[in-house]
Structure formats: structure tokens, C-alpha cells
Write a protein that binds this DNA or RNA. Structure first.
Lengths: 249, 249
DNA sequence: CGCCCAGTTGAAGAATTTCAAACGATGTGG
DNA sequence: CCACATCGTTTGAAATTCTTCAACTGGGCG
């Protein structure tokens, strides 16, 4: 999708100092309310990683928890695996969103995270971040807000899985992604899904076949047009109506 | 279930100063790591409410968000209502747990909360709490941890709704409640469910009929015994095996 | 060119929902 | 004290939705 690397190995770590103010995501990312004076202390602990190709893990469940991550470009899925080896996708993370917040309560990572696409992240070592908080109330507030938002997102997902039919779930996910992309300055009606049908199905609690059929039905109703991962939302109003609830983000 | 009040009206507010150290839940509640010196500043902002009867709302979605709450006794459910008026139960909160964390990101409450039983709470005004954080790193850490735990809980629930059959969902909920009660010093194998079948079904993404049938099946398998809300877990091992994953809490 | 993977489509099967009825505990009024 | 209404729960049978199994398609890449 984006530029692909020749040599994955030397993409794994970057060491250039991050410059949040120049980042396109500054307005929506963690440091958005941090004063210019404090910003450099924050930037000092952040590790700007280079792009990593699709499919690479960012971390695995059980790894020692030491950092959270901000997505700079691309996309990431987080997922957990239960005793029988079943995966459950917990979330998709777009640029400007944090990954790994659920593991703060633990010494080890609770979820695994994998690149959906060529993706770059900023690594934020958590103990260092935590040490900054007492001195930086703005940052502390923002972190609390982002944690809270993560709860809201999970609960939104719950209300999807709890009572909605397949078509409504698919519509809701598409509307949600549409909103998030729009917020980042992209088209709200035409975009490429960063994740596979299998990930979508898993996220929505459906099989890939059901997802596929659902796309076909929505297409026949004239609500959207799909070609592989490329979707065009033709009737956002009715799509939202079908999703039938709380717009998120 | 517990003592019932004659006059609900004068139960709504208490003004006795809270004394966390003497509270049976001190070890598991928000202030557990706060130093004795800091504790009194925290206690000063907490409002100890008197018991409220079953069915009363604690807050409603859309209310101005101003406080989070710690359950002192009884139980609370939080839920959200979508555009069509469908409810989705987001969580059950037992003594020692916080309620309302999801709304921190918002000016208004995102969920509604209702007493499942005669319940008393400590109200913690959030702006005041937030003001204490810079001076009390321990408290800040604990709040962050609790927020993180809330994410883990929601994601646990997701993995239930995402891929589990009805019996597994019911078994998982029972094991989860069992664990939480045990942690609070109650019996892990014999307890009274604080919530109705309807709440259970809604929480698990099932109809009440399916929940009822599931209880009957689990009973026939000799895994438990149910009479109304009273359950006895007869074979916790196999119940966990059936639930088939990550123990939470 | 042909393999392979992701996605689509079809038909049969399984699980849950829906509709309907009955039960038991609780509470009210005669 | 009993008859009756109510609520939450249980049970049964039919309808629906989703899953499963299987075959097929089309684009990308060796």
C-alpha cells in the first residue's frame, strides 16, 4: 500500500529524535495539550521507530510490558488469544491513536499487536512517561482521557456484538472507520480498509463468509460499493441508520 | 435482599466523612496505595452516600459528568441505550470497584448506572480528584491502573461475545463473578447473583430464554445448581474449562 | 503459465431467537 | 384467608440467522 521496504531488518528501530510539533498528527495525539516547554521533556523519552512491513508483530501477549505506542502511519490490530487458541480482535488502531493501554495494569502485555499495513509508530516507554506525569498535569489529563476513550471504544464494540445483526455490525464498523478517517483529513466516503475480511469478521464476531455476504447485501441495497478492500460509501445516512446507534469518535 | 429503607428520599445523600482506613474494601479500592498523610486530603473530597434501594439510578446517560463512584456495598450495572432504544449492559460492578470511568473523556455521562440491589457508594468528584493527582503520584498511578483494568474487562467481555457459544458465555460470567467475590472474602462456589436473567442475557448478548436454557443444561451436566438467583458452582474446574479462557481479575 | 491466497457464493446444518404458554413466588384486595 | 394479578423465570415448538463445509473466482507473483 505505502512504500515497501527492501530490508525489513533495518526498519525495526529508528533513532531520530521525534518532533511532535511537526507531526501531522500533533493535534490529535497524546501531546496535543502539552506546553512547548514541557514538550521537549516528552520528546526526549519517545523513540521514533521506522516503518515496519505488514504482518510484523509490534508486541506479543506475554511480553514484558514496558511501552505504549502511538501510531504514526499505517494501522495496527490488537488481539488476544484464549486457552483454545481462538483469536479475538480487540481493536484497530489508526494514525494518532495509542496502542497498548490495556496492559498498564499488568507486568506483561495482555494483547498482541500486529501491523495491518506498512506502519510506523512512536514508542513511549511507560515508566518514563509515568515519571513525567506529576510535573505535567496537562499530559496526565490527556493520558487519563485517552484511557477513558479506550473504554468507550470497547464498550461501543460491545453494543455491536451484543445485539446487532450482521449487516448492522458491518455498517457500524464502516461508519466508524469513515468518521475516524475524516477526522484525520481523509475522505469519509472512499477509502481502503486496512484489514482483511478475516480481521473484520473476527472483530465483529462473524465468520468471513457472513462478512462477505453482508457486503454483498449492502451493495445490492445501494448503500455502498466494494471492490476488495476498497470501499465507497454511497449513502452514509442510511448506512448510519442501519448501524442504528451512537456514532463514536 | 439487604435491609430495605422506609424512606428512600433521605437515603440519597449522606454527609458523614468517609474513613477509608476502616473500610473493609480499603485493600482493593482506589486509595489502597495512598500514604496516611495524603489519605485525609483524598477523604476530604469523597462523599459517603447512604444506601439506595434496588432499581434506583445512580446516574443517567447525558447527565453532566462530575463524579466517579466507588461501590461500598451492593452492586451496580452500567448500560448504554442506542438510537432505537436497545440497551446494552456494559458491566456489573461489585464492592470495591469504580463506576463511571468511561465518561472521563466526556462532559456528559456516556452510560447510565442503576442499583442492582440495595447499594451504597462513595462519590468522588472528578475535578477535585484530578486536582489531587499532581501532588499524589501513588493515587495517579492507581487511577491509571484502574482505567487500564476497565479496558481489560471490556475486552474480556468482547472475547466472550465474539466467539463463544451460549453455555461458555454463561460459564465465563459465573467464573468471573466467583473470582471477584472470592477476592472480596466471600464464597467462590455459592452466592446470589445480584442481577436478573434479563441483565445477564443482555450482558452476554443472549436472550433471557437462551440464558435460562443454558443454566438448565449446565445443571444437567452437574456443573452447577441454580435456584432463582442463588447458584452453587459444583465443578469449578470444568466450568472454567467450558468457559475456556483467560481468567480475569 | 500456474499456483496460491483472499474473497465470494451456494447449500445444508446448527445454534439462537422469536412467539407462545405455563410456572412459582410475591403482593393486593375482597 | 383465599382469589387474583403480576413479575421473573422456565419450557416448548417454529422461524430465522449465522455457521459450516465445499466449490469456485480472480488477482498477484514466482
Amino acid at each position: 500500500m505505502s512504500a515497501v521496504s527492501r530490508n525489513p531488518v533495518d526498519l525495526l528501530r529508528g533513532d531520530k529524535r521525534v518532533e511532535c510539533q511537526n507531526c501531522a498528527l500533533f493535534r490529535i495525539c497524546l501531546p496535543k495539550h502539552v506546553s512547548a516547554a514541557d514538550l521537549s521533556s516528552l520528546e526526549a523519552i519517545i523513540i521514533k521507530r521506522k516503518a515496519t512491513p505488514r504482518g510484523q508483530p509490534l508486541f506479543k501477549a506475554g511480553d514484558k510490558f514496558s511501552s505504549i505506542y502511538a501510531v504514526r502511519s499505517g494501522g495496527i490490530k490488537t488481539y488476544r488469544t484464549d486457552a483454545e487458541g481462538n483469536e479475538q480482535v480487540c481493536g484497530f488502531h489508526l494514525p494518532g491513536e495509542l496502542v497498548g493501554l490495556e496492559s498498564i495494569i499488568s507486568d506483561t502485555s495482555i494483547n498482541s499487536a500486529k501491523m495491518l499495513d506498512t506502519t510506523s509508530v512512536c514508542e513511549i516507554p511507560f515508566p518514563e512517561l509515568e515519571a513525567l506525569l506529576p510535573r505535567m498535569p496537562q499530559l496526565q489529563k490527556e493520558l487519563t482521557r485517552l484511557l477513558s476513550r479506550e473504554i468507550v471504544t470497547s464498550q461501543w464494540q460491545l453494543s455491536l456484538l451484543g445485539s446487532k445483526k450482521a449487516d448492522a455490525r458491518v455498517a457500524a464498523l464502516l461508519c466508524n472507520i469513515s468518521d475516524r478517517l475524516e477526522q484525520r483529513g481523509y475522505s469519509a466516503t472512499r477509502f481502503s480498509l486496512p484489514m482483511s475480511r478475516s480481521d473484520i469478521g473476527n472483530f465483529l464476531g462473524l465468520t468471513i463468509e457472513t462478512v462477505s455476504r453482508s457486503f454483498t447485501r449492502l451493495q445490492r441495497k445501494g448503500l455502498l460499493s466494494v471492490k476488495g478492500r476498497m470501499v465507497t460509501l454511497l449513502d452514509l445516512d442510511n448506512l448510519r441508520r442501519l448501524a442504528g446507534h451512537t456514532t463514536l469518535h
